Lab assay of single mutants.
Amino acid sequence: GTEDLKEEAKKALKKGDKERAKRALKKAGLSEDQIKKFIKEVL
């Protein structure tokens, strides 16, 4: 589900894998702006 994808994105970001995080967030249905915001909040 969406929460799982967001968790996956957080883990990817902590490993420095932004591309993987972006893919997971796109799958979760987030827009580009939401993805940028999510990444900023996590990092």
Rank of each mutant, 00 (worst) to 15 (best):
L13E: 01
L5C: 06
G1C: 14
A24L: 15
A24K: 06
E3Q: 11
E32C: 08
K6D: 02
E8L: 12
A24W: 08
K36F: 07
L5E: 04
L30D: 00
K10N: 04
D17E: 08
D4G: 11
R20K: 11
D17R: 03
A28E: 03
S31A: 05
A28D: 03
K22G: 05
Q34H: 04
K6Q: 09
L13N: 01
F38G: 02
G29I: 00
G29N: 04
G29E: 02
R23W: 05
K10L: 12
R20V: 09
K10T: 08
E41D: 13
R23L: 07
K27W: 04
T2L: 14
K15V: 14
K10F: 06
K37P: 00
G16W: 03
K37Y: 06
K22I: 15
K26L: 10
K11L: 10
A9E: 00
L5D: 04
E32N: 09
S31R: 04
L13A: 03
G29L: 02
E32T: 07
V42L: 10
E8N: 04
K36L: 13
D17I: 02
K6N: 04
I39R: 00
A12I: 04
A28M: 10
K36V: 12
R23N: 10
L13M: 05
V42F: 15
L13W: 05
K40W: 15
L5S: 04
K6T: 07
D17W: 07
S31G: 05
G16T: 01
E3I: 11
L13Q: 01
G16L: 04
L5F: 10
A12C: 08
E32P: 11
K27Y: 04
K18I: 15
E19S: 08
D33R: 09
G16F: 05
K14I: 14
E32M: 07
L43A: 07
G29Y: 01
A24N: 06
K26E: 14
A9K: 01
T2V: 15
F38Q: 03
D17V: 02
E32S: 08
S31P: 04
E7F: 07
I35G: 00
D4Y: 13
A12K: 02
G1I: 13
G1N: 14
L30A: 01
K18A: 12
K11S: 10
L30Q: 01
A12T: 02
L13I: 10
V42C: 10
D33E: 13
S31I: 02
D17H: 06
E41V: 06
K18E: 13
L30W: 11
I35Q: 03
I39T: 02
K27N: 09
S31H: 04
E3R: 09
K15A: 15
K10H: 06
G16Y: 04
K26H: 10
D4M: 12
K6V: 14
L30P: 00
K36E: 15
A9I: 07
L25D: 00
R23V: 13
L13S: 01
K26S: 10
L30E: 01
D17K: 04
L43W: 09
K40Q: 15
D4Q: 13
G1R: 13
A21F: 03
I35M: 06
E7P: 01
K36Y: 09
Q34T: 03
A21T: 02
E8A: 09
A21V: 04
G16N: 06
G16H: 05
L30R: 00
G29S: 02
K27I: 09
D33H: 07
L30K: 00
K27Q: 12
K10A: 08
A9P: 01
E32Y: 08
K15Y: 10
E41S: 10
T2I: 14
K14V: 10
E41K: 09
I35P: 00
L25H: 00
K11V: 11
D4H: 12
Q34S: 05
E41M: 11
K40A: 15
K36C: 12
K37T: 09
K36H: 12
L25F: 01
D17M: 06
A28T: 03
S31K: 04
K36S: 09
G29T: 00
L43H: 05
K36R: 13
K10G: 03
A28S: 05
A28V: 04
E41N: 10
K11G: 07
G29A: 02
L30C: 05
L25Y: 00
A28R: 01
I35F: 01
E7L: 11
K37M: 10
E8P: 01
V42E: 08
D4P: 07
D33Q: 09
F38Y: 06
E32D: 13
G29F: 02
K11I: 13
K40G: 11
K40D: 15
K22L: 15
V42S: 07
R23S: 12
E8D: 07
K14Q: 13
S31F: 02
E7K: 09
E3V: 11
D17L: 07
D17F: 07
D4W: 14
A24T: 08
K6L: 15
L43R: 05
A21D: 00
K37D: 15
I39N: 01
R20W: 12
G1E: 13
F38L: 07
I39K: 00
K11P: 00
I39P: 03
K27R: 11
K40L: 13
I35K: 01
K22A: 11
V42T: 09
A9T: 02
E3F: 05
D33I: 08
A12M: 09
K26A: 12
A28H: 03
E8V: 09
A12Q: 06
A24V: 13
L25G: 00
A24E: 07
F38M: 06
R20E: 13
L25R: 00
K10V: 12
I35E: 02
V42W: 15
E41P: 01
E19M: 07
K27G: 06
R20T: 14
E7N: 10
K14N: 09
S31N: 11
L13V: 05
K18F: 15
I35A: 04
R23H: 08
A21H: 01
K14E: 12
G16V: 01
K27C: 06
K10P: 00
E32H: 07
R23E: 15
K36W: 06
L30M: 12
R23D: 14
